[in-house]
Design a protein around this nucleic acid. Structure first.
Lengths: 342, 342
DNA sequence: CGCGACAATGTAAACGCTTGCATCGGCGCA
DNA sequence: TGCGCCGATGCAAGCGTTTACATTGTCGCG
């Protein structure tokens, strides 16, 4: 069986019009605003549509109508449950309003993200959801110039002059760090994602430093190690940390997945958590509470964020104005993986 | 700050042509096949493009060129790491060839999936990746009629006359079930996703039945409970199972997430795994080996599947012919969660 | 009975790009 | 010097919609 390029070329509006004995305008109206067409004609047209198996050509439609009912989201990776969940909610909300969501994943590569943003914008997305602030100014200019509404999620920073919905990564992590310090920890290590193009990770690390400084500790004492996303990487990072800084008593990870890896490595090394070493995460993914011991982490309302992001973006498109940025609350989930130092 | 609908309308090919003092044809060629244009002209054109901040209009481009360089994937949910991983690989492979991937998620709803398939097809996707066989025949007809290449992943069933890449869910699960039975289990329960529109789940359940029958057990004795995807749901399902069938000694789950939930519930109920009850999963997601005890499950080469699916689909588009379906091998990862019955 | 208003439909001009074909120089070769 | 060829570029015809505007036919009302 083959896919003839188009042996029977696809039916077009004109074909339908011919068959139904009306003009293309009428067919178009039938499809887009049926109440402008009287019952009998409409029935005839619909039958023709059915018989021909007609489906509108999207490119042509966009070209003529300049609206796609399609929103786009560019996320760093699908393999992170955190984004998956937020985006799922985002899509559900859009769906409720008859909009379609197109997702692209950039695999944490800046160049690729840029390409995808441009692709989605050129494709006429009615609006774009982006993750975090960090990206080339040229992209923002491009988006503004084409007047494509965009919203930044997973970060909230009033200092950044961008419409956004998210939480304050810095202060959330600082809160957690205060708790860690309060438990008596002085030798703290941080396992982070690469911070160079990830403002969320960067802010979280910064949060720890802030709390340390407040407590009279020397922030430059923070042992920092960066590694890509992944359980395995978290494990490796913990081993390296303990090799280089053996007196560490608390390891704060910038996300739960790294923390889970660290947890595993600790156990494999025969360390008891939290008796010998404390470990914390960030995100509160579902398995955080399932781990052994359960992981102390920062809970983030991902679904709420996704849902509200959708509403905001649709508003932006409809009303053509910038919304107020929204700050969501996070809260700390204190679980067994954090305890006093040995 | 506002998003004027288009105060300064976007620059078009014609604008660039005017500024560079060439025809639109030349500009188009500059952008799409630069070697057809001599150096100096090209430079001039590129400068104009730059100055104007020109970006091609995708709709127009598709309309004229009938090729989008875009592939689509419709997955049941992003929240399942299994799909996330496979799709990530799928995208990476496409990216290597300069193609873009658009993803839509159907939240396991048939009607939504259909809508999204149509949307992506109408949008001129060069090819579509679908999950599993189960969907309305009308959709297949539609796709064929529009001659949109499509490939089915995560399932392989020679009986289905569709191009696909995947593994044999039925025999994979049967293999695992044989192992369970071999350990001595006779009272087996199965926690499944809803099987009505999910052939993968259905086949896995069927696999258990086959193994039971082979072993001389009565397949209708299999205690089956269906529940949506999610750890919490897995927990609940386990409790219900044990309430209704208290003599169960092995619980086979159709995916790891449900299994993890079951594991948690067992522990909460004070049962020792596997001493009091054995639990198995399917997929071998990363945390399966991290669980306490580590989960016995079926390992599936998700990334390989994604990567090869991309190649196949690109071939289908280029060569316009149906490929051979590909059957991938799975293998059982025997871990501590499975043991002999008490 | 005639006129205006209005509802239903048709006409045709965009929309922004690609591409087959025509055109135009300039070059090599006899 | 003249011819043919070829590479670079321009011309213009689509591609399949939407939609402003024009046209037609009906109906109610004075």
């Amino acid at each position: 069986m083959d896919y003839p390029p188009h042996d029977t070329p696809l039916p077009t509006l004109a074909d339908v019009a011919r068959l139904a004995n009306v003009s293309t305008a009428t067919v178009s109206r039938c499809l887009n605003s049926p109440d402008q067409v009287v019952g009998e004609t409409r029935k005839r047209v619909m039958k023709a549509v059915e018989d021909l198996g007609y489906a509108p050509n999207f490119g042509a439609k966009t070209l003529a109508a300049k609206q796609t009912n399609t929103f786009g989201a560019i996320i760093p990776t699908m393999e992170n449950a955190v984004f998956a969940r937020g985006i799922q909610a985002f899509q559900e909300e859009l769906g409720r309003h008859g909009k379609t969501l197109l997702i692209a994943s950039s695999a944490y590569q800046e160049a690729l993200e840029e390409e995808q943003i441009r692709a989605l914008a050129a494709r006429g997305a009615d609006g774009l959801l982006l993750i975090g602030y960090h990206r080339d100014q040229a992209i923002y200019d491009y988006l503004r110039r084409r007047s494509v509404p965009y919203l930044i999620a997973w970060s909230y920073d009033p200092a950044q002059d961008q419409p956004s919905i998210g939480f304050d990564n810095k202060s959330a992590m600082a809160d957690l760090a205060r708790l860690v310090i309060q438990q008596g920890h002085r030798r703290i290590a941080c396992i982070s994602a690469p911070i160079v193009s990830n403002d969320r990770a960067r802010d979280r690390v910064e949060g720890i430093r802030i709390a340390m400084t407040e407590a009279g500790l020397d922030a430059s004492d923070l042992w920092l190690i960066q590694t890509p996303y992944g359980i395995e990487n978290g494990s490796t990072a913990l081993r390296e940390t303990l090799a280089a800084a053996p007196d560490t008593t608390a390891v704060m990870c910038v996300n739960d997945v790294l923390a889970l890896g660290a947890l595993r490595a600790s156990k494999e090394m025969g360390l008891r958590v939290p008796a010998d070493i404390s470990i914390t995460g960030f995100d509160d993914i579902e398995i955080a509470s399932l781990a052994e011991p359960a992981l102390t982490t920062v809970h983030v309302p991902h679904r709420e964020m996704g849902r509200r992001a959708a509403s905001m973006l649709m508003q932006m498109f409809k009303r053509r104005e910038l919304p107020e940025s929204v700050r969501l609350e996070t809260d700390i989930r204190l679980r067994r993986s954090l305890g006093p130092p040995p």
